[in-house]
């Protein structure tokens, strides 16, 4: 009998598009190198070890926030509350410094962040609210509460704790930023966690095909609630580093990083539809955005150009990924 199936496989495009689909880290690392070379050409002598340290230091908080987006995007979600949570955490630690002390401040900040994440997770996981809307609503609540807290504690000049200043902004031997002490273990944890733990597998599974995950016995609400709590904790960590880096503690500190954090994850090859991506590409994506920012600043371009460029890059890269990953 003639079988009703042909074994003709799905269309497999060769060369670059295949590389972009299967190993996005390689082509975008090449892109990063190209941008660095351009930097070196237009500003000769600037690109050196010291410069790299500065770039790295600036990229770390963005990379962590982009990590939140990466993890949530793997499940087909997004977390727009990260920046409100990050700012809140940074501010809270600073405001509690002179009373209860640094350690209590950290504990309170992380607890508050976890509660925010729990709220998002319950909305997304149990009530099936779209993650975008849910995290947006939570960011309202967090920002409002942080503002209220600010007025309640009447902190006119909030001092960023010296420990955070050191970790956030100083560099070992004027070269390697201390923030790597936090960032490298975190990166290792995320990279290994995604690959070698059941939880990591579940993130990919839920994002790739929620029906298949369900039919295999996964209860997605458990995964999603855990995920959004983790995401909020990571955001809080980023907020602490950021307040150390800028020596500012304000409730709107990280607001300008919402869109770049999504952009870094998208550029890094994580699909907004879920099931595809990783943290490695996201780190490179964060570096690309940081270098472009630095380059545009060095060339004296206004903020406006940076924003337009960022927006265009997201659309172009997202369209490229959509093209190479869509099954025709």
């Amino acid at each position: 009998m003639t079988s009703s199936i042909s074994t003709r496989g799905a269309r497999i495009p060769g060369g670059w598009s295949r590389l972009l689909r299967e190993q996005p880290v390689v082509p975008i690392s090449a892109l990063l190198i190209v941008i660095v070379v351009i930097y070196a050409l237009v500003r000769p002598g600037v690109v050196n070890a010291d410069w790299a340290g500065v770039i790295l230091r600036a990229a770390v908080p963005l990379a962590i926030l982009a990590g939140c987006q990466t993890l949530t995007m793997l499940t087909g979600g997004i977390d727009l509350s990260v920046c409100a949570v990050a700012s809140m955490a940074g501010f809270m630690v600073a405001s509690l410094l002179h009373g209860p002390g640094f350690e209590i401040g950290i504990a309170v900040a992380l607890t508050a962040a976890a509660l925010a994440g729990l709220l998002t997770g319950i909305g997304v996981g149990i009530f099936r609210v779209h993650p975008l809307i849910m995290s947006l609503g939570v960011s309202f609540v967090v920002l409002g509460l942080a503002n209220a807290w600010q007025i309640l504690t009447v902190q006119s000049s909030t001092g960023v704790p010296p420990v955070l200043r050191t970790i956030g902004s100083e560099r070992l031997g004027e070269l390697l930023p201390y923030s790597l002490v936090v960032f490298i273990p975190l990166t290792a944890l995320i990279l290994i966690g995604l690959r070698r733990t059941g939880f990591g597998r579940m993130l990919f599974a839920i994002g790739d095909n929620p029906t298949a995950a369900r039919l295999s016995g996964a209860r997605s609400w458990q995964v999603l609630i855990t995920l959004y709590v983790l995401s909020a904790l990571m955001a809080a960590l980023a907020g602490l580093l950021l307040s150390g880096l800028t020596n500012v503690a304000s409730v709107t500190l990280a607001d300008s990083l919402v869109l770049p954090s999504v952009a870094a994850a998208v550029i890094g090859g994580t699909s907004i539809f879920g099931g595809r991506g990783g943290f490695g590409g996201t780190i490179v994506g964060a570096l690309i955005l940081t270098v472009i920012s630095a380059l545009l600043t060095a060339l004296g371009f206004p903020e406006a150009v940076r924003q337009i460029l960022f927006g265009s890059i997201i659309v172009v890269v997202a369209a490229a990924y959509t093209r190479v990953t869509s099954v025709s």
Partner: peptide, 8 residues
């Protein structure tokens, strides 16, 4: 399509 993680 209901059972597989197509990208994994």
């Amino acid at each position: 399509a209901d059972a597989l993680l197509m990208q994994r």
